[in-house]
């Protein structure tokens, strides 16, 4: 229909001017080379300064430019347009479920609040040795697939449970980090961490929909980490019941 043209349908909202958000269509010459969605946004912004989005590293490690690209969350800077074009068209929307500040920029306060809630830092109150605390390579291996999270929010904002209960369900990103510290041989607050997660919402609102795994741009698996937390919680509960019985 557009031949060598590319139609970009962009979510626009400027709170100072627009009562409601709307989709604006831009038609541009199809770039000669395959470019990233972020490059496409740069091209549009050169024509229209008012377009707003976040970006920083432009190589997939800082997590700034998570957005919804043709219906799927991803990082604009490492998503080639060739991989997402459908009938010469690309539709770009902000990450779903969070309040929109402007255009593709969402308010991530609730997302970060969940991250802070799980106490995302090592807790070990024993006196630190003069050198490093020792950790075997096997113990360290347990952190692989967990610590690499870039907090882009692609996973949590693709999760229907997080859409429903963003205040009470911790969400896949923060749960992945919760498990990162539960799995760290140097962290001594396992019991406290589990207790803080044992209510019906924090973890148990995860119903294994797996959208998180499907969209993670770093190939991480929050669903698996949540499963591990659930088994730790079950085991912990049994232990408590047994000790109560005694």
């Amino acid at each position: 229909m557009f031949g060598n043209k590319l139609k970009v349908s962009l979510y626009r909202y400027n709170p100072e001017e627009d009562k409601f958000p709307y989709m604006k269509n831009y038609v541009i010459d199809k770039p000669e080379r395959d470019i990233m969605v972020l490059d496409l946004l740069h091209l549009l912004k050169e024509e229209d300064q008012s377009i707003s989005y976040r970006r920083s590293c432009r190589e997939g490690v800082c997590g700034s430019d998570g957005m919804n690209i043709n219906g799927k969350n991803g990082l604009a800077c490492i998503t080639p347009i060739s991989s997402v074009i459908k009938r010469n068209k690309i539709e770009l929307r902000p990450l779903p479920g969070l309040p929109v500040i402007r255009d593709l920029v969402v308010d991530m306060t609730e997302f970060y609040a969940q991250y802070e809630k799980i106490k995302p830092f090592l807790q070990n109150e024993t006196t630190a040795p003069e050198q490093e605390r020792l950790q075997s390579p096997e113990e360290r291996d347990k952190l692989d697939g967990l610590y690499e999270c870039i907090l882009c929010a692609c996973c949590s904002t693709s999760c229907p449970s997080f859409w429903w209960n963003p205040d009470k369900f911790v969400g896949p990103a923060a749960l992945l980090q919760a498990y990162r510290f539960l799995a760290d041989s140097r962290d001594l607050k396992t019991q406290e961490r589990l207790e803080a997660l044992s209510d019906p919402y924090s973890v148990y609102r995860c119903h294994g929909i797996m959208n998180c795994v499907n969209v993670c741009p770093k190939g991480l698996n929050p669903n698996k980490a949540i499963g591990e937390i659930k088994s730790m919680l079950h085991k912990n509960k049994k232990d408590i019941i047994v000790s109560d019985g005694v």
Binding site: F121, L122, N124, A128, E130, Q131, E132, R133, L134, Q135, S136, P137, E139, R140, L143, Y147, F181, D184, R186, D187
Partner: peptide, 20 residues
């Protein structure tokens, strides 16, 4: 400064003896 980072939780890779 590096040992402090480790105490803060930085997930350094490890040698067999457990050191950084």
């Amino acid at each position: 400064a590096v040992f402090e980072l480790e105490h803060m939780g930085l997930p350094f890779s490890r040698f067999e003896n457990g050191r950084i």
